[in-house]
Design a protein around this nucleic acid. Structure first.
Lengths: 121, 121
DNA sequence: CCAGTATATTCCATCTTTTGAATATGGCAA
DNA sequence: TTGCCATATTCAAAAGATGGAATATACTGG
């Protein structure tokens, strides 16, 4: 229908998706670049980007460019309370960390500071 | 996808709908019969029933028969906190009452106790 | 300017949700 | 049983979401 609806439904609509929920979980401890999310979620970049677009459109996240990388962050941390309440209702343990098992080697400067480029002669 | 997803997404999926949200709002002050919801929401009975089915399937509401009428109630009131948090995030006023303007004349015994059947000779 | 890297967007086939319409069920009273 | 009332379920068409593939954009370095 999508007519005079409350924006509330749009919010829940955005939270209705496993990957988007996983992305938000990865943003709990501060902003992350797309490559970071990509590495940790094990999904294609374009796909992650699509989901980020949805989160952006409902005003849940904000992006900020830093050189080649784009860093995303949650605008209103209350959304975490929302997710936690939902999980609590269902008896799901609130996993404070990683959304999935994949270790994720994010190559961005913030994740991997230049240290291994020592190349001894 | 719908595979190994968290039940959390199912919860949000159920809350993603304006009519379902309105039904939950009507159940804030205790259980209500279907005709009550029908009267207040101004939607067809079958439609209301469909939405109630969705809410039932995710374990948000419970029903109980009393004669001809079926009364629905919210199982876990925490869901109201969830909705309120969402609305607060969006700056939407938490309307404690009626979901829409329609006055709603519910004919069920609890709403309209037998008083007008006096029929003087 | 050109190439390369990080991210974004568009397009599209497929699957799911939405909602109207018709129909079914369950209970009550006569 | 019959008829009626309240509610539930099923079906199907239209609308919307999902996720893959290709492509576009933005920035950096040479």
């Amino acid at each position: 229908m999508r007519t005079t609806d409350e924006p509330t439904t749009a919010l829940f609509r955005a939270l209705m998706h496993p990957t988007r929920l996983a992305i938000l979980d990865l943003l709990r401890h501060g902003e992350q670049c797309v490559c970071h999310l990509e590495a940790h979620l094990g999904k294609r970049q374009a796909y992650i980007s699509q989901q980020l677009m949805v989160l952006r459109e409902v005003g849940l996240v904000d992006d900020q460019r830093d050189g080649l990388n784009v860093y995303y962050r949650v605008i209103n941390p209350q959304v975490f309370a929302l997710i936690d309440t939902a999980r609590a209702m269902l008896g799901v343990a609130v996993d404070t960390d990683q959304a999935d098992g994949s270790q994720g080697n994010c190559p961005c400067p913030r994740c991997s500071p230049v240290t291994e480029i020592v190349l001894v002669s």
